[in-house]
Design a protein around this nucleic acid. Structure first.
Lengths: 348, 348
DNA sequence: TTGTATGCGTTATCAT
DNA sequence: ATGATAACGCATACAA
């Protein structure tokens, strides 16, 4: 025999008034006698009344819920970003339904439908790696469901987006290898090309070489994906080349890929940066702790989450100023793996 | 002029049948002519019908939603645990409302009320540090809202709980320092004593000393909290003691606290483990990457999340076998900071 | 200031 | 096999 939850009706009955007066009193609406309001509030407390958000959502046609879709939840970038999102949305009175696509297109499509069914007021999404067609997203846009992409964006379907300056970041870190260190034969461990950050970072890499008149070798671009294992195997391919063709420096699409590359280089009996220099992207929490601390590009994940959430809330509440592609700046973090600060590694 | 969402009523009107038949057809209920079912499914697809989960929840008195409350979202333990939770719940058809208390009692109370208003079917919670009174939790229990604690538990209020074997883990790692290394004067950087893991680990520490007839010094137990900064200042207090009273080895309540202690010891010009040995707890992703890799206790975070979610779903669906305190085993990870494997640090 | 009728979108129940 | 009606808990619109 489970005790049922107390509703506004019970409060009304208890006080011999109508449900409407109870509703008005509890929601601080005008046209309620102060005394009745007090009585309502008191008996509500006494009875342990908790308003039913579901019923409220149904009648208000608004859930105050935002759906979040991330491809990975362990990866350090996303927890940070989620913290930024949570900070903003909770202040605006929204709460989050968290879902994760596990980098899988089918699963992403599933969770998006779930969020639609739950009538979320808006969606924040970072695209899964394996998604090839943007149809699912276009459908959301057609339904006029507010959507903001973050980190992994989709271009050309008229949707808001907050990302880091991937192209510029990749360009600058590559230029560092060219201008400061003058390494010949610079390679790139690339991300999947149908994911915006994979594509943008390769572009930045190429632009750097081009603008500095540095040679570009098609064979030195190898797809590695976003994880350590992919970095390891991609780097191994480069190491299997004849020594005179092997890269002298490597730009990895992100830090995990760089970690994999580090391991491959060490397994091959070579030293970083003396034999092969290496830089990453994302400033993973582990980067500064590697045997040779990794030179990388810092991504302000918290900032990205925050900006994306702010934009989404603005769209939902109708105060948004049109469709934007917001870009958050990155910062170079120069450590040792590029060849800088080498003396600090030597004892006394 | 926003196009309204299509409802079951539209489908019914379109086909000249009743809403009930539509509902039955769409939910694979019996007593529907196969032909009508097909027609319903087709026009539903054609019209882009998406069932309203809110309305469904209201009438079914069930939301298929689980609330998750974590004290920290960046800390590496919780993203892992959440992944375990997500894995289980999504398979059972539930989705997650994620909230975070930021280790703050007031905020935790707020989000719990939010989850109540949203009529979640159950709650998974890891207690915030600053919560002193368990009243809020007891209230949830009284409402018969299914609750399972994970990692940071609350005892004695008759609620399910999944945690790692904190006492045993702390005892074993302390015994390692005693039995293998025979260090005199072993200190403990403790966690807050009103948090279960803080209390259990101190207990394990004491039991180890006791059962091995090893001296216990009250002054060598200093509260450090769970973060790096607390570890640093607590360790500093120990270092300020006269050298002959200073600990020869330190058991930190968790890895971040140990990192802080490492820094303090280094800043003091002392070496780990030659001058002071140190062990942590949690096997943070950074632990193996420290200058002196940290000996620690591995916590299976994914496993904890998974087990907690499984228990909660069982409680919700009425298949639970009574109140349990499930304990997941830990594993010692012996690296160098305790004094083991020292030769591997020396060059060739 | 307060109350009544109506609707939000769905399912349960009882008819037909 | 199908339909009519009520109900879930609340808020809007209008009447009193």
């Amino acid at each position: 025999m489970v005790k049922k939850r107390v509703t506004a009706k019970e409060i009304a009955r208890e006080l011999g008034i109508s449900v409407m007066t109870v509703s008005r009193a509890l929601n601080n609406r005008p046209n309620v006698d102060e005394e009745t309001r007090h009585k309502v509030i008191n008996t509500a407390r006494r009875l342990g009344y908790v308003p039913n958000g579901i019923a409220k959502s149904l009648v208000m046609q608004k859930t105050f819920t935002i759906g979040v879709v991330v491809p990975e939840i362990t990866h350090s970038f996303f927890p940070e970003a989620i913290r930024g999102i949570e900070e903003v949305t909770s202040k605006s009175g929204y709460h989050l339904i968290l879902t994760h696509s596990a980098e899988d297109a089918a699963r992403e499509s599933d969770v998006l439908h779930l969020l639609e069914r739950q009538r979320v007021d808006g969606i924040l999404i970072s695209k899964a790696q394996t998604v090839e067609k943007d149809e699912v997203y276009e459908q959301l846009v057609r339904q006029r469901l507010p959507v903001v992409f973050f980190d992994r964006c989709v271009q050309g379907i008229g949707v808001n987006c907050v990302s880091v300056n991937d192209e510029e970041g990749a360009k600058e870190i590559t230029e560092h290898l060219i201008v400061v260190h003058r390494y010949p034969r610079i390679a790139h461990l690339s991300g999947p090309q149908h994911v915006s950050i994979g594509e943008a970072r390769l572009r930045g890499f190429k632009i750097a070489l081009q603008s500095r008149d540095w040679p570009f070798y098609e064979g030195l671009v190898v797809e590695a994906g976003f994880h350590e294992s992919g970095g390891y195997s991609a780097m191994t391919k480069l190491l299997e080349m004849p020594p005179e063709q092997r890269p002298r420096a490597v730009v990895a699409v992100n830090d995990p890929a760089a970690f994999g590359a580090m391991k491959a280089i060490q397994d091959w009996g070579l030293k970083i940066p003396q034999d092969i220099a290496l830089v990453g992207f994302s400033d993973d929490i582990r980067s500064e702790l590697m045997d040779t601390p990794l030179t990388t590009v810092h991504q302000p994940a918290y900032e990205v989450g925050k900006k994306a959430a702010e934009k989404l809330v603005a769209v939902i509440e109708g105060t948004s100023s049109g469709i934007e592609e917001i870009v958050v700046g990155t910062q170079q973090v120069i450590r040792n793996s590029c060849g800088c600060n080498l003396e600090s590694n030597w004892p006394g």
